[in-house]
Design a protein around this nucleic acid. Structure first.
Lengths: 215, 215
DNA sequence: ATCTTAGGTAGACGCTTGTTTACTTGCAAC
DNA sequence: GTTGCAAGTAAACAAGCGTCTACCTAAGAT
C-alpha cells in the first residue's frame, strides 16, 4: 500500500567515488570481516563516550561508514553489540591483577591515567546509562561482576570482602560521570602525583581489612 | 482530515467514580496547585529512580494521576520539570553545611543513610543519564556545582581545593550506579558502623589538605 | 439561571528509535 | 560470458517519544 517506488537513483549519483578517498587506503569494497571490525570499533568509541542509549545504531553505522542494517545483521541487536563491545573491553582486568598490596595504588594510577587520555573514559561511561532495558542491565551487571568485583574480592582478606569491593567500585564508577560533567581540566590542573596519592588512600580506605578485628 | 470523532464516551464510563476511591481522601476535582504538586512528587520519585531519560512524561502523568498534557502545560517542558525537581532536591545541602572537620563523617553518614532508604537514591540517579540533551547536562552541571562542589570547596583550605572536592564528588556520584546495579543487600549485609568508618576515611583522603605542604 | 474562565482531557502531530524487508551489486567459480 | 551467492543498500515498519491543539466541563461570579 505505502510502498511506492524504490531506487530511482543509481546508488551513488556521481560516477566513481571510492578511488578519490585518500584516507583509509584501499579498503576493499566488500569485506565482511573488515566491516564488522569497523562497526565494533565505532561502537566501542561511541558507547564509551555517550553510554548505551546515548548512542543510536544509525550513529554507529555512520561512524563505521556502513549501512544501518548491517549492525543488526552482523550482531543481532544493539544490545548484543553492546555486550560484544564489553567483552572486548578488559583493560581494567590487567590493572586489578597483581599483588594485593599494590592494588589500591594500581587502581589510583588507572584512574589518573584515564584523566589524561581523552578517549579512555570508555567503560565507566557505559555503566550508568543502563537502566533502560533490563536486558542491558543484566549484561552490564555480569560484566562488572566478572571483571571488577570478583577479581577484587579474590585479592581481599577478612570479612565483608564484597562490601569493601563495592566501595572501591563506587570510586571507579563515579569517575566517569564526574569527568564527563565537570571536564578534565580541573583534575588535570592538580599535581598528578598528589591526586594519585589521594586516590591511593581512598582505595586503601575502601579495601583494607578492618583495623580492629576484635575491639 | 484525520480527525474523525472525539469523545464518544462520557469521560469516565461508569457514573460517579471519585467517591469510591478510598485512598487519597477527598481530593478536590479541580485544584491546580494540588495537581502541580502531585506531578512534581511523581517526577521526583521517578527521576530519582530511573534518571532523566529513563522516565517518560506519560509515566510521570500516570503516577500523578494527571493528564499528560498537564505536565507540559504547568512546567513548560520535561527538561524544565527536571530542573524544578532538582532545585527542590537539596537534602545534601544540609549535609555539607556544618563544621569542616566533621564533613567527611557527615558525607559518609549520608551515603550510608541512602543505603537504608529505598527511594533515596534520588539525586545521584539523575546524574548519569544526562548526556542526551545538552540542555539537561547544563541544568545538571549547574546544580552539582551550586549544591555540592562549591559548598565543599568553601570548607576546604589549601591548594587544589577544587580537585579535592571533585574526588569527593566521585564517591557521591558513584554510589548511585553501584546501588542500582548491585542492589542494596551486599552493602547492607556489612556492619553499618564499619562501612561508615570506611567511607569517612575515603572522604577524608579525598578532602584533607596536603600532608606535605613543602617537601 | 447564565456566563465566563480556568482546570482537565483525548487525540493527533512530527520526530526518532531499533529492527526488518526487499532489493541491487560486486566478486568469484564455472 | 553467465550464474550464484554473499555483501551491501534504501526504504519502510511499528512503537515510542515529547509536545501541542481543540475540545469538554466543573465551579465561581454575575
Amino acid at each position: 500500500m505505502r510502498v511506492e517506488d524504490k531506487r530511482t537513483v543509481p546508488a551513488e549519483a556521481s560516477g566513481e567515488r571510492r578511488p578519490e578517498r585518500p584516507e583509509r587506503a584501499g579498503r576493499p569494497k566488500r569485506d565482511r570481516e573488515a566491516t564488522e571490525r569497523r562497526i565494533l570499533d565505532a561502537a566501542r568509541d561511541l558507547f564509551g563516550e555517550h553510554g548505551y542509549d546515548g548512542v543510536t545504531v544509525r550513529e554507529i553505522a555512520a561512524r563505521a561508514e556502513a549501512n544501518v542494517a548491517l549492525v543488526n545483521r552482523y550482531f543481532g541487536s544493539k544490545a548484543a553489540l553492546f555486550g560484544e563491545v564489553l567483552t572486548g573491553e578488559s583493560v581494567i582486568r590487567g590493572v586489578i591483577a597483581g599483588d594485593p598490596a599494590g592494588l589500591p595504588r594500581r587502581l589510583a594510577e588507572h584512574f589518573v591515567r584515564q584523566i589524561d587520555q581523552r578517549s579512555a573514559t570508555a567503560m565507566s561511561r557505559m555503566l550508568d546509562r543502563s537502566a533502560g532495558q533490563p536486558e542491558v542491565k543484566k549484561i552490564l551487571l555480569r560484566y562488572l561482576e566478572d571483571v571488577i568485583v570478583q577479581p577484587i574480592i579474590a585479592q581481599l582478606e577478612g570479612p565483608d570482602a564484597r562490601a569493601r569491593a563495592l566501595l572501591a567500585s563506587t570510586i571507579i564508577m563515579g569517575g566517569g560521570p564526574v569527568r564527563r560533567l565537570f571536564g578534565l581540566d580541573d583534575l588535570r590542573a592538580a599535581d598528578p602525583a598528589e591526586v594519585t596519592d589521594r586516590l591511593t588512600a581512598m582505595f586503601t580506605a575502601a579495601l583494607a581489612p578492618p583495623v580492629r578485628p576484635e575491639a
